[in-house]
Design a binder for these strands. Structure first.
Lengths: 153, 153
DNA sequence: ACCATCTAGTCAAGTAGGTTGTCTATATGC
DNA sequence: GCATATAGACAACCTACTTGACTAGATGGT
């Protein structure tokens, strides 16, 4: 049996379906002004508390200028704030505000809800395998290069 | 064990890794002027030979106007051509040219190469299960609504 | 200590890939 | 046969990104 070659489309629609669902719920909770990129920013910041714009840009797969614009926007909307960087006076350390923390808390909760729902449908071991396989295969496909988050379209 | 909540990122990077790889190979084969959206257009056209702009827009998750622009671009570059629609004189049936068929042939070949490589890594049954699970979970997450291909970012 | 080089962020302009709104011609259903 | 719906065209606009040039501060070699 030849491979059917529909995996790219499956990856695309699964991502889209998850993001749509999360966004719907967030909007109902008062976070209607965030898009997927913002969620990934929050997540990154919660694991890297003193991240800089350059760092974020690399993680997301956008230029540092675009990253700065993103941060500006989140700053204006009260999700993040900039502090002087502890060791490098050129840099500005980006931190989540209370509102930012509230939002990422909801984002992660929704991600986990979906994951739990999936575990109900196909079983927890299979979700674990899905996760593990995706990580393995992505890593191999990328050939060791870091893979940016932003989908090219 | 709580769900770890990294699945959205995994879906994003797996899609990105696959698309990057395919694009690299296509560029080396003389198809450097196509992006992921074009590949999905070609694929759709090869299964729906007389598709229209509206139809394509719905499939991709963009407006009909954006779909027309996309088709214009592919037309100018010689990948598709427009024919009078057999039954509806408002419509224009979009068809692949020889170059378009050559391109989608390569696209699908690369998709299948990746799938075969994945089968070497984790076994064919597990790739099949990955595919099936993704389809099931996407369907459930979307709640029956059709899911557009284009990733929101 | 000095100087060449590198790096973080800024400023400004440009572009890609969409969007919404409006219009015409054709199709469809009662 | 007429009201309504649909396909595509045209135009204006917008958002999220890009490239390029620049400044202030960091870094490393001699």
């Amino acid at each position: 049996m030849p491979p059917s070659g529909d995996l790219p489309a499956l990856l695309a629609v699964s991502f889209r379906a998850v993001m749509d669902r999360v966004h719907t719920h967030l909007a109902a909770e008062g976070f209607g002004d965030v898009r997927p990129a913002h969620g990934f920013v929050f997540q990154y910041l919660s694991f890297h508390p003193h991240a800089t714009a350059v760092e974020l840009g690399e993680h997301l797969g956008i230029t540092k200028q675009a990253a700065v614009q993103l941060i500006d926007e989140l700053d204006r909307r009260g999700y993040v704030e900039r502090h002087p960087h502890p060791t490098d006076r050129r840099s500005r350390a980006i931190g989540l505000t209370a509102r930012g923390r509230a939002c990422i808390e909801r984002v992660v909760a929704h991600w986990q809800d979906i994951e739990r729902r999936w575990a109900e449908l196909i079983g927890e071991e299979r979700v674990q395998r899905l996760r593990g396989d995706l990580a393995t295969l992505t890593d191999d496909t990328a050939g060791g290069r870091p893979v940016p988050l932003r989908p090219l379209w």
